[in-house]
Design a protein around this nucleic acid. Structure first.
Lengths: 361, 361
DNA sequence: ATTACCGATGTAATCGTTTCCACGCGAGCA
DNA sequence: TGCTCGCGTGGAAACGATTACATCGGTAAT
């Protein structure tokens, strides 16, 4: 933490500079302000916190002392005393995934408008890293925790929930930890996608899953499986590619698909990074979407319309997810209660699964 | 900040629970640990901070008390006392820009490996928002500030620099603020790009700039201008589109280009988001890259190889930028000195400017 | 005129750590 | 035996804010 070296308090500033970055004014404390305004620190604190019962002229004397000294309250000290940091922690699974960065952005906006800052921890889909961040955030006494958990049984998260810190899950959640969940239900959209695929003539449909224990992955796989059943289509084990929501796994699974006697005609990547992976692999093999393999992805991102061919995707209401999550979390933090919320996702058909009826006329 | 309601210290825990989230153990303090281990708080603190001069058996008694009580030091209190937060602030211009998220990711990795956390502030290319974040971070007494400044004269940043807080610029910088700058020099790559364009037969070359006062935009424009001069090509005012590094401006400028009597044959977008904007606009008008207009972008991103057609871009060594920036900043924070570092960017030709000689054979 | 009260302000305890200093005690040395 | 070390430890003062409580005039009610 930065503190000016020639730490001249109101008392005496005769000490000589001890550091290279000489020139700045000392960082003033509340005592300095009090001294200059000729009041006590209590009064200064009162005007700073907008308490009533301070005479108008006193108030203005304090205020001018504050601005003359460029005083800014030390948030660390304040937090220690008041037991609140006005900070929310956000743990996201992967910063490189545009879905999560859009989410983070929405979260930050919503938090700021409510007077909170947010500290983002990137779990990189790794349990250990996630738990590291959870603990660090807790050590810093953040007021509440927003998390999109990585796969696996997180001790830190379980302890956090037990400790009673306000917490809400966003996008993904963990069974057995009883906190509100803010998410989008993708099941209807997945069914719609399967219909779309079927309508385009595809019969051998495959899926690339996320990590086994993530709720989002499971939901997408289950919805896919049951939609296939509706259409009387099989879903052989070999067509369920085990991914991990990251690019490389999309590539690997695609490669495995081509090792099959009968590779799938269409593949559904349960997130956008894995879709990138399948495109990488296809390109490597000199193959084309959708002729050699049709492709659809969960999560719509800005680049998809420009991909060759434009990729059909399932879009989530990402910014709203972020806003609702923050609303729920601040409700908890401020002592109100909060419920889970479920929004819905929808299919955006483009051309990566083949041309639709109209365009082939 | 969360504190357990039935705040049972070592002394007395007879108070009754006052909150719904009953069940967790109280959050233990150093006093509780001391009491349980039968030592003083000073000793506990010593073992926790790895100070020498604690007898081995005392140490282990303390350690077991710590783990039995699941004690975690309160980072807020510790920071107040020690005047350091072991936290770095990172101000980035736009979280939605993949370049910056890749940078943020590298920064976080590097910081973590050095024992620092990082708090990211997203300026969204807005001066006011940037300054808000700078002030918030300073209030929290972060140890150092890493910033990629938005356009304009930032009072907060100037004050911060004056105050002497360790600070380094990354990617962009501000003239007149004398702190180390870690960046990539794109000039050679821009010249190379112009050569590439020229070689492909393009003569009417246009550029879309970033905000006027950003160093990166200026460097790119200047390099472009001087390379054109070398090739004896003009750069009319009308071919300098004023953008702001965000998608929408790319769209707007492209539209303006098509309002010209002689629209450019090729356009160089000085960042990837604006390139997205030009593609959006082109698509809207039913036009094709590169036939109707060739396109190149600064910053390479994972999707570019898959765009239709793959977009040629100038790539920066983004992760290394992040690592070097953190290295410089922690040097400053820890009392060493730090120098600016300049890496270099390079051209990655793909097909968005036209086919190269070989492919057209 | 005395009392009660109220509004404005100051004094000091407190939050949970770290760390300076003092203290007790056993060992080594004279 | 007495003195001085030094090692291990505890007591208590910070850090910079907030806030319960005391104080002190002055005004209104009796």
């Amino acid at each position: 933490m930065f503190r000016h070296p020639s730490d001249c308090r109101a008392s005496g500033d005769t000490s000589t500079p001890r550091s290279p970055w000489e020139s700045g004014t000392a960082m003033a404390g509340i005592k300095d302000v009090a001294a200059r305004a000729g009041v006590s620190v209590a009064t200064v604190s009162r005007v700073l916190n907008g308490h009533s019962g301070v005479r108008a002229d006193t108030r203005s004397r304090v205020l001018s002392a504050v601005s003359e000294l460029r005083y800014r309250p030390n948030a660390v000290a304040r937090s220690l005393r008041t037991d609140q940091t006005r900070t929310l922690g956000l743990i996201i699974s992967d910063v490189l995934n545009p879905f999560f960065t859009e989410l983070a952005r929405a979260v930050e906006d919503a938090a700021r408008s409510r007077g909170y800052s947010v500290i983002i921890g990137n779990a990189d889909e790794r349990l250990a890293l996630q738990d590291h961040h959870v603990r660090t955030l807790l050590d810093r006494r953040i007021d509440g925790l927003l998390v999109s958990p990585a796969e696996g049984d997180s001790v830190a998260l379980r302890e956090a929930a037990l400790s009673g810190i306000p917490m809400v899950f966003v996008d993904r959640w963990i069974e057995g930890i009883d906190v509100p969940v803010v998410r989008a239900d993708g099941r209807a959209a997945v069914r719609e996608l399967v219909g779309h695929l079927y309508g385009l003539g595809h019969r051998r449909l495959a899926i690339i899953t996320g990590p086994v224990a993530t709720t989002t992955s499971n939901e997408r796989v289950e919805a896919f499986r049951s939609a296939l059943r509706e259409y009387g289509l099989p879903l052989p084990e070999a067509y369920i590619g085990q991914g991990d929501f990251q690019t490389e796994s999309g590539r690997r699974v695609t490669s495995a698909f081509f090792g099959l006697d009968e590779p799938p005609e269409a593949v559904f990547a349960t997130d956008n990074l894995m879709a990138l992976g399948v495109m990488d692999e296809l390109r490597l093999r000199g193959l084309r979407v959708p002729d050699d393999m049709a492709l659809a992805a969960f999560d719509d991102i800005a680049w998809f319309p420009h991909i060759d061919p434009p990729v059909t995707a399932i879009a989530q209401p990402t910014p709203e997810l972020g806003h609702r999550a923050v609303a729920a979390l601040t409700d908890l933090v401020e002592g109100r209660s909060a419920d889970s919320v479920t929004l819905s996702a929808h299919l955006i058909p483009r051309r990566s699964c083949g041309e639709d009826e109209r365009s082939r006329r």
